[in-house]
Design a protein around this nucleic acid. Structure first.
Length: 256
DNA sequence: ATGGCTACGATCCGTAGA
């Protein structure tokens, strides 16, 4: 099973690129973030025609997540249980026995801001949710835009970013708390090229300078990590005209 | 100099992203 995650930064703007990418890469399951549209505006028919069924938790202007799959999607759930949140950031479904949780974690804006506090509370709620999901579903993948660069090697210029939002100690601790549940950062299961990132600012010709962060991740439970044959980042879509500022992350899972 | 794009929904600029 080929599983991907991509923050598309508007499904309406990126649909042509998404369709081309699906045809080229043939992923089985795709977690999408930042749809920026309500469910009614989601291009369900176009994706169906491309061979993908979808489940969506959309929102106007901000946020919005979806899971696409070439196999049937079951046990669909949205949001984090017991965490009241207007923002559509989480959707989960089961595909071929694998529990897939798609997340768009809060940005946090600036350390010390209200949004930063919300980000930390949100991660704590996510941790509790994933702890329960792991117990119910040993084959668990959590894919999305985490808005955390876990280590300095995930940051193009650690000195410039020191203490900033996305790399601050409390955010990294929140990330490590997810790993402590027994989840593995799939990207780090393999030797990787240095300075592999998943996000580059639209400004400052950041992509051409590879001035990026690795903030989009696919976490795997132990049972899935054992079956993981590859974990990569596909920078190609970021090279296109009018790209998303994020690149897709992918994993290859052997049959269980 | 802390900006610089991009998307959105509302105007002809503000909010948010990261």
């Amino acid at each position: 099973m080929r599983l991907a995650s991509w923050n598309v930064n508007s499904i309406k703007v990126r649909l042509p690129q998404l369709l081309e990418w699906l045809a080229a890469e043939q992923p089985d399951v795709v977690c999408l973030q930042e749809l920026k549209t309500e469910d009614a505006g989601f291009p369900r028919a176009a994706l169906e025609a491309a061979g993908y069924s979808s489940v969506v938790s959309g929102q106007k202007t901000y946020n919005g997540v979806a899971i696409l799959s070439r196999s049937p999607l079951g046990e669909v759930a949205t949001g984090i249980p017991d965490f009241a949140d207007e923002q559509r950031r989480v959707i989960a479904a089961t595909v071929r026995g694998v529990r897939v949780v798609c997340v768009y974690c809060p940005n946090g804006q600036a350390v010390g801001s209200d949004k930063y506090d919300y980000k930390l509370r949100w991660f704590e709620a996510l941790r509790g949710y994933l702890e329960a999901e792991l117990k119910a579903h040993p084959e668990l993948a959590v894919a999305g835009d985490f808005n955390v660069a876990p280590e300095d090697r995930d940051v193009h210029d650690p000195k410039a970013w020191e203490g900033q939002v996305h790399v601050s100690e409390r955010e990294r601790a929140a990330w490590r708390a997810l790993l402590e549940l027994g989840l593995k950062d799939s990207f780090r299961l393999f030797a990787q090229p240095e300075k592999t990132f998943t996000w580059w600012d639209y400004r400052m010709v950041a992509f051409r300078r590879n001035a990026g962060l690795r903030i989009d991740h696919i976490l795997l439970s132990a049972a899935l990590a054992e079956r993981c044959a590859a974990a990569t980042v596909d920078k190609e879509p970021r090279r296109l005209e009018r790209p998303s500022d994020h690149a897709p992350a992918l994993v290859e899972l052997r049959a269980g």
